[in-house]
């Protein structure tokens, strides 16, 4: 890395831009009251984003597929969560499944 000022500017703009995006909702909402239906819609939109994040981070890496171990781990965690297993178990089982499969040479 040989261009320190440019890196600093890039980090600064990324920080200000990211904060502005985070702040937009709270800033808007303090100006007017949101109707109940709009509130529900926004909550559902956040769930849609989070679910898409689950799918892309579980199944893809960069622009390609994520292999087998990771999706398998997430699947095990998902099934446990669905069966209402304790959260700790969900997280540990997902990680252990992926790690265990990799130990066996599964990508």
């Amino acid at each position: 890395m040989n261009n320190t000022p440019l890196v600093l500017v890039a980090i600064g703009v990324l920080a200000v831009g990211t904060f502005s995006m985070r702040f937009a909702g709270p800033a808007l909402r303090s100006r007017f009251e949101m109707p109940e239906r709009a509130q529900q819609f926004l909550a559902a939109a956040a769930i849609v984003l989070l679910t898409a994040l689950v799918a892309t981070s579980a199944l893809t890496e960069g622009h390609g597929p994520a292999g087998i171990a990771r999706p398998a781990g997430v699947l095990v965690g998902g099934i446990l969560a669905w069966r209402k297993a304790p959260f700790v178990l969900v997280v540990v089982a997902a990680a252990a499944t992926a790690a265990g499969l990799r130990l066996l040479g599964v990508p």
Binding site: R70, V74, G78, A94
Partner: peptide
């Protein structure tokens, strides 16, 4: 296996 733990965390929460 932490790369599998994070999607699982979010999945359990949603």
């Amino acid at each position: 296996g932490l790369d599998a733990a994070f999607p699982a965390v979010l999945l359990a929460l949603v």
